[in-house]
């Protein structure tokens, strides 16, 4: 199968069941809302070592936020409830509470509640004030610039993490350019995030290693420098591979984002340097979800 000259490998991306939460961060202006969000989503690329995977879902304008100020929605993904709770609380405390003018609200509703400002309120040292409006409780914590306002709970829902595709290119420059086009195409897409730096991964991994202590190691089959040493999956013309990882609330969200990204590359000038699009998987034995590239792009 080829799309505008780009070969689509007959393979699938393997993804995992995860738990997700959405929060809305607002501030007096976009600059400070973004500062807070960048800090919050820092070091949240992979659950392997960061605890959670988090990213800015989209920018919200004044009439889309609960308090009528500019803001961003953030999605957080984790393998376990306890890790999600812990990371959320820590990051809100260290990155949002500390950032001038911010406030934080829940961006999703379900039966399964997890604390957002519930424990953080004790920072108020007894001067915190709660307001319960429409069965939701909000905490007002006095801070040096006025008050930090946060909702008591957010919700946890089922989600999918690890949807991906690989861009196989003739050069590093064109590969990166294609990645940027793909990320730009899904920048403000609802219900998905691309948790890695700029949305792109260069260090795709395989399960296991020759070193016993490691659970994952470099995906040698897709490393262009190892073409002659390993059972490479790369055509001879490929000299750079980059991966885009997409986490989403549902299967459809990830499939649509994957399709949109690949089509954006195929419609760009850089397509002449793109040899193929592939996907990362572990033989289908680990993940509960499979995203077949050809099926998605049909």
């Amino acid at each position: 199968m080829k799309i505008k000259g780009i070969e689509i490998h007959n393979t699938f991306a393997e993804a995992f069941n995860m738990k997700a939460a959405r929060i809305i961060v607002t501030a007096d202006n976009n600059k400070w809302a973004k500062n807070a969000c960048m800090s919050f989503t820092g070091f949240a690329t992979s659950v392997i070592a960061c605890g959670i995977e988090a990213g800015i879902e989209k920018q919200l304008n004044k009439n889309e936020t609960p308090d009528g100020r500019p803001g961003f929605s953030i999605l957080l993904f984790s393998m376990s409830r306890s890790q999600l709770e812990k990371q959320l609380e820590t990051r809100v405390g260290q990155c949002l509470l500390t950032c001038p003018t911010t406030a934080v609200f829940s961006g999703i509703d379900s039966e399964d509640k997890i604390p957002l400002g519930k424990n953080l309120r004790y920072f108020g040292d007894g001067y915190q004030i709660s307001k319960k409006i429409n069965s939701k409780r909000y905490w007002r914590i006095p801070v040096m610039d006025g008050e930090f306002m946060c909702e008591e709970y957010t919700s946890r829902i089922s989600a999918i993490g690890g949807g991906n595709f690989l861009i196989l290119s003739k050069s590093r420059k064109s590969c990166l350019e294609a990645c940027e086009i793909a990320i730009e195409a899904i920048k403000n897409e609802a219900n998905i995030i691309t948790p890695f730096p700029g949305g792109v991964v260069r260090s795709g991994s395989k399960v296991g290693s020759k070193y016993k202590a490691l659970i994952a190691s470099t995906n040698d089959a897709f490393c262009p420098t190892l073409k002659s040493l390993t059972q490479s999956k790369l055509p001879s013309t490929v000299s750079c591979v980059m991966e885009i990882v997409i986490n989403g609330i549902s299967h459809n969200d990830i499939a649509n984002a994957t399709k949109k990204s690949i089509l954006a590359i195929s419609n760009s000038k850089v397509k002449k340097d793109i040899v193929a699009v592939s996907a990362g998987n572990y033989g289908g034995k680990l993940g509960q979800h499979k995203f077949y590239l050809r099926k998605i792009l049909k």
């Binding site: 308090d67 009528g68 003018t101 307001k131 007002r140 610039d145």
Partner: peptide, 8 residues
Amino acid sequence: ANYNFIPF
């Protein structure tokens, strides 16, 4: 001081 919660 500014009280964000009032307009909210």
